[in-house]
Write a protein that binds this DNA or RNA. Structure first.
Lengths: 143, 143
DNA sequence: GCAATACTTGCATGATGACGCAAGTAACCA
DNA sequence: TGGTTACTTGCGTCATCATGCAAGTATTGC
């Protein structure tokens, strides 16, 4: 397991008054919360293949990965290609075999960046949702 | 932005020889890479509503959130209920209005836990994928 | 060359899901 | 009590997608 030490270097952004205003704001969370990436993680079979590759700790061919799943070989091949398409896997073709390896460092980095982007807005209003709309910031007595 | 300090307290698990063996292993990543959670993040409209709430920094009613989206009101209500169902939002009913607030702390915590779980297996084999199947560990000359 | 291996692609099918409309329910107000 | 507000639920429709089968392509070994 990991030990996490997080430190806020910037103050939280001032919260908009309405969700309509909030939607117009540009923020890191907009790009990091990418539906296309998470769509790849939305299917149980695909997730099984991905975790299988992560736990295997080495690159694997489609044939190898297909052995740990009851679905058709073509389905596995398509799933792995899709995961590579969103950057979750690295694909390398050698002769007739296709090697897939999880891009662990990139994946965990993207997840932590998203967590940071969410935290950036966290606390921009009273955590107890007192309704002061964040005007009072951390000094609001309702917290 | 955040400053991250990560420290590995446990050695990386020994990589299985085959993906079939890897699939049988129980690991933290199995539970954290939950398709049901990420299915909620797989739809652009739903992500738009979620980021809107995150950036707003306070709890909002369904009517408010619906203003920043062009889809039907019932669609917004259903999306928010679904996001609350997977724990991304906190729902509070007061009279006839339904308040939704992002569970920022829980969200970022889950994302970091997943990143940690992935990192746990990262480096259990040669990063350059030399094919030694992780037997050599960090001492493998191919890296 | 020929066969086997490893993967890709096309196609049909069934399931899931996003959406809008309309009706229903529950709370609030006059 | 009757109307308005705020949300929920049911239903039909359309689009997307996961799956399996079959055919195709490309590479390797004999």
């Amino acid at each position: 397991m990991m030990t996490q030490v997080t430190k806020r270097s910037n103050p939280a952004p001032k919260a908009p008054r309405s969700p309509k205003q909030a939607a117009r704001r540009r923020a890191a969370v907009d790009k990091l919360l990418d539906p296309d990436l998470f769509k790849a993680f939305a299917d149980p079979t695909r997730v099984k293949l991905l975790t299988c590759l992560i736990k295997c700790g080495r690159r694997c061919s489609v044939t190898e990965v297909a052995e740990c799943c009851s679905v058709d070989f073509s389905v596995v091949a398509r799933h792995l290609a899709l995961l590579a398409g969103v950057g979750a896997l690295e694909a390398t073709k050698e002769g007739r075999t296709m090697w897939y390896a999880p891009r662990c460092n990139d994946l965990s980095h993207r997840l932590r960046a998203l967590a940071d982007a969410i935290d950036e807005w966290c606390g921009s209003a009273c955590e107890q949702n007192c309704g002061c709309e964040g005007e009072h910031g951390d000094s609001c007595g309702c917290a």
